[in-house]
Protein backbone atom coordinates (compact mmCIF):
# COMPACT_ATOMS: atom_id res chain seq x y z
CA UNK A 1 0.00 0.00 0.00
CA UNK A 2 1.38 3.40 -0.91
CA UNK A 3 0.60 6.71 0.82
CA UNK A 4 -0.06 9.70 -1.33
CA UNK A 5 2.34 12.63 -0.77
CA UNK A 6 0.51 15.84 0.18
CA UNK A 7 0.15 18.15 -2.76
CA UNK A 8 2.83 20.85 -2.66
CA UNK A 9 1.63 24.39 -3.39
CA UNK A 10 2.72 25.55 -6.82
CA UNK A 11 5.66 28.00 -6.97
CA UNK A 12 4.78 31.58 -7.68
CA UNK A 13 4.88 32.53 -11.33
CA UNK A 14 5.08 36.16 -12.31
CA UNK A 15 3.34 36.75 -15.63
CA UNK A 16 1.76 39.83 -17.23
CA UNK A 17 2.42 41.94 -14.13
CA UNK A 18 0.62 39.56 -11.80
CA UNK A 19 1.00 36.42 -9.70
CA UNK A 20 -1.84 33.93 -9.53
CA UNK A 21 -2.29 31.58 -6.58
CA UNK A 22 -4.97 29.60 -4.76
CA UNK A 23 -5.54 29.69 -1.01
CA UNK A 24 -6.99 26.85 1.02
CA UNK A 25 -9.81 28.16 3.17
CA UNK A 26 -9.36 25.30 5.61
CA UNK A 27 -5.95 26.77 6.42
CA UNK A 28 -6.63 30.50 6.16
CA UNK A 29 -9.83 32.20 7.22
CA UNK A 30 -11.37 34.61 4.73
CA UNK A 31 -11.11 37.48 7.24
CA UNK A 32 -7.36 36.80 7.60
CA UNK A 33 -6.99 36.85 3.81
CA UNK A 34 -8.96 40.08 3.51
CA UNK A 35 -6.93 41.78 6.25
CA UNK A 36 -3.67 40.71 4.62
CA UNK A 37 -4.86 42.03 1.28
CA UNK A 38 -5.76 45.37 2.87
CA UNK A 39 -2.37 45.62 4.59
CA UNK A 40 -0.55 44.89 1.32
CA UNK A 41 -2.52 47.42 -0.70
CA UNK A 42 0.46 49.73 -1.24
CA UNK A 43 2.58 46.90 -2.64
CA UNK A 44 -0.01 45.14 -4.79
CA UNK A 45 -3.72 44.71 -5.31
CA UNK A 46 -4.87 41.27 -4.19
CA UNK A 47 -7.88 40.41 -6.31
CA UNK A 48 -9.92 37.78 -4.47
CA UNK A 49 -11.94 35.44 -6.69
CA UNK A 50 -15.03 33.39 -5.90
CA UNK A 51 -14.43 30.52 -3.47
CA UNK A 52 -14.99 27.04 -4.87
CA UNK A 53 -15.31 24.40 -2.18
CA UNK A 54 -12.32 25.22 0.07
CA UNK A 55 -10.27 26.98 -2.55
CA UNK A 56 -10.01 30.71 -3.09
CA UNK A 57 -8.25 32.02 -6.20
CA UNK A 58 -6.15 35.13 -5.55
CA UNK A 59 -4.39 37.27 -8.13
CA UNK A 60 -1.70 39.73 -6.98
CA UNK A 61 -1.66 42.60 -9.45
CA UNK A 62 1.39 44.87 -9.42
CA UNK A 63 2.11 48.36 -10.67
CA UNK A 64 3.78 48.82 -14.06
CA UNK A 65 7.28 49.46 -12.65
CA UNK A 66 7.57 46.25 -10.62
CA UNK A 67 10.38 43.81 -11.37
CA UNK A 68 9.87 40.04 -11.10
CA UNK A 69 12.15 39.57 -8.10
CA UNK A 70 10.24 42.17 -6.04
CA UNK A 71 6.90 40.72 -7.06
CA UNK A 72 7.94 37.22 -5.93
CA UNK A 73 9.23 38.63 -2.64
CA UNK A 74 5.94 40.46 -2.08
CA UNK A 75 4.00 37.22 -2.61
CA UNK A 76 6.25 35.45 -0.11
CA UNK A 77 5.72 38.19 2.47
CA UNK A 78 1.97 38.07 1.85
CA UNK A 79 1.96 34.45 3.01
CA UNK A 80 3.94 35.40 6.13
CA UNK A 81 1.40 38.11 6.85
CA UNK A 82 -1.37 35.55 6.38
CA UNK A 83 0.13 33.41 9.13
CA UNK A 84 0.18 36.43 11.46
CA UNK A 85 -3.40 37.30 10.59
CA UNK A 86 -4.47 33.74 11.32
CA UNK A 87 -2.86 33.97 14.74
CA UNK A 88 -4.63 37.28 15.34
CA UNK A 89 -7.95 35.68 14.47
CA UNK A 90 -7.17 32.95 16.99
CA UNK A 91 -6.36 35.48 19.72
CA UNK A 92 -9.47 37.47 18.81
CA UNK A 93 -11.73 34.43 19.07
CA UNK A 94 -10.37 33.59 22.50
CA UNK A 95 -10.25 37.08 24.02
CA UNK A 96 -13.07 39.08 22.43
CA UNK A 97 -15.56 38.47 25.24
CA UNK A 98 -12.93 39.09 27.88
CA UNK A 99 -12.03 42.46 26.37
CA UNK A 100 -15.70 43.49 26.54
CA UNK A 101 -15.81 42.35 30.17
CA UNK A 102 -12.69 44.34 31.11
CA UNK A 103 -14.02 47.50 29.47
CA UNK A 104 -17.41 47.04 31.12
CA UNK A 105 -15.68 46.59 34.48
CA UNK A 106 -13.50 49.68 33.85
CA UNK A 107 -16.52 51.90 33.28
CA UNK A 108 -18.97 50.12 35.60
CA UNK A 109 -19.03 52.96 38.10
CA UNK A 110 -19.42 55.78 35.60
CA UNK A 111 -22.35 57.31 33.78
CA UNK A 112 -21.13 55.77 30.54
CA UNK A 113 -23.15 52.61 31.14
CA UNK A 114 -26.90 52.98 31.08
CA UNK A 115 -28.39 51.61 34.28
CA UNK A 116 -31.89 50.72 33.01
Amino acid sequence: MTTKEPEAPPPFIFRDGAIQTVLDLRVYRLTAIQKSAYRFAERCTAVLGSPEADRLPVRFVFGPTIIEQDALETARLFFQELLDQELREQVGDETRALRALIIAQAFSRTDLIRQD
Binding site: V91, E94, T95, R96, L98, L101
Partner: peptide
Protein backbone atom coordinates in the same frame (compact mmCIF):
# COMPACT_ATOMS: atom_id res chain seq x y z
CA UNK B 1 -16.01 35.07 35.36
CA UNK B 2 -15.73 31.28 35.72
CA UNK B 3 -16.79 31.08 32.09
CA UNK B 4 -13.54 32.73 31.04
CA UNK B 5 -11.25 30.37 32.91
CA UNK B 6 -9.26 28.13 30.63
CA UNK B 7 -8.86 24.41 30.92
CA UNK B 8 -5.60 24.71 28.95
CA UNK B 9 -3.17 25.94 31.65
CA UNK B 10 -3.72 29.62 31.10
CA UNK B 11 -6.22 31.95 29.54
CA UNK B 12 -5.10 34.54 27.00
CA UNK B 13 -5.95 38.13 27.84
CA UNK B 14 -6.67 40.53 24.96
CA UNK B 15 -3.53 41.68 23.18
CA UNK B 16 -2.18 42.73 19.80
CA UNK B 17 1.11 41.85 18.13
Amino acid sequence: RSRYQSSRGYQLAPFRF
